[in-house]
Amino acid sequence: MTQAIDATALAADYWSTSIIDIHPGSIKVRGYPIQELIGTIGFPQMIWLMLRGELPEAAQAHLFEAALVASVDHGPHAPSIAISRMATSCGLPLNGAMASALNALDDVHGGAGQQAVELYESIAQLMDAGAAESAAVEQGVDAFIAAHGKYLPGFGHRFHPVDPRATRLLALVDESVLEKTIHGRYAAIARGIEALLKQRKNKPVPMNIDGATAVIYAELGFAPELARGVFCLSRAVGILSHAWEQRGRNERNKGPMPRQMSYRYTGHGERHLP
């Protein structure tokens, strides 16, 4: 005999969550009444609580916030920022412009932080299996290149000889290691990659913003995919700012180049149907 289905329990289980508990007059986030969080914790702590289930220690939150601040914007030539401006000039509201721009943050533009964490973790696994750090770095880098091509995420920059964001973040990482906020394992792995690239290319290939934030996210225990997720949260601030600025300029249908600049046509010369 078929058992009767408890529709109420079925519906409750269908969207079950450990994140938020809402009842009339009551909102609890990970068990904390929302009124106790409002005005007490900062937004980085709230992000951490939502994603990780517990509040961070103050030193962890400070380092996490530094990574978020560093990634907010990189100018109108960054594809996601340019998309937000073009979308706004085409008449999209702010939420539409933001959605259009955020959708561009995939593997090529926006995915390097996640990929760098994955690279660091693969090297850490080799070390856990008994490989010395230098050997693990070389093996991990070679395996990544074999699987994904010669581009190594998190190192080198087409615009900055030395990325000023990475320099500051790595200084904070070193301070956090001394304060025992983090263990420093992934920072050592990343610097091992820097040393290997310098040796192979006979010139420095410094860590960039993606490599440095990946160190922080890995040290703080974030999963690789969350490294991309929190980058999107950070870059959304720059996207919104540029979209709002563009809104005030009253320009219509702004394309990727000024109208005075022509593109190069590389197709057939003029031809006609028989």
Results as ranks from 00 to 15, higher is better:
Gln3Arg: 09
Ala9Cys: 02
Asp13Phe: 08
Asp13Thr: 05
Asp13Gln: 15
Ser18Met: 02
Pro24Tyr: 14
Gly25Thr: 03
Lys28Gly: 02
Arg30Asp: 08
Arg30Asn: 09
Tyr32Gly: 07
Ile34Asn: 06
Gln35Asp: 13
Ile41Met: 04
Gly53Val: 14
Gly53Trp: 06
Pro56Thr: 12
Pro56Cys: 01
Gln60Ser: 07
Gln60Arg: 07
Val69Ala: 15
Val72Lys: 04
Asp73Asn: 10
His74Leu: 08
Ala78Glu: 10
Ala78Lys: 01
Ile81Met: 11
Ser84Ala: 15
Thr88Lys: 10
Leu92Ile: 06
Leu94His: 08
Asn95Ser: 09
Asn95Arg: 00
Ala97Met: 04
Asn103Ala: 10
Asp106Phe: 02
Val108Gly: 08
Gly110Lys: 13
Ala124Gln: 01
Asp128Cys: 01
Ala136His: 03
Val137Gly: 05
Val141Gly: 06
Asp142Met: 12
Asp142Leu: 13
Phe144Pro: 00
Ile145Ser: 14
Ile145Leu: 10
Gly149Pro: 00
Lys150Met: 09
Lys150Asn: 14
Phe159Ser: 06
Phe159Lys: 02
Pro164Arg: 13
Val173Thr: 01
Ser176Met: 04
Thr181Ala: 13
Gly184Phe: 07
Ile189Lys: 00
Gly192Asn: 13
Gly192Ser: 12
Ala195Asp: 15
Leu196Trp: 13
Leu196Val: 12
Lys198Tyr: 06
Arg200Thr: 09
Lys201Gly: 15
Lys203Val: 05
Pro204Tyr: 13
Val205Gly: 02
Ile209Cys: 01
Ile216Gly: 05
Ile216Arg: 03
Ile216Lys: 02
Ala218Trp: 02
Leu226Thr: 04
Arg228Ala: 08
Gly229Arg: 00
Val230Leu: 08
Phe231Trp: 11
Cys232Ile: 09
Ser234Glu: 04
Ala236Arg: 04
Ile239Met: 14
Leu240Ala: 14
His242Asn: 05
His242Thr: 01
Trp244Val: 12
Trp244Ile: 14
Glu245Ile: 07
Gln246Ile: 10
Gln246Ser: 14
Arg247Lys: 13
Pro256His: 05
Met261Asp: 05
Thr266Asn: 10
Gly267Glu: 03
Gly267His: 03
His268Ser: 04
Gly269Thr: 05
His272Tyr: 09
Leu273Trp: 05
Pro274Tyr: 03
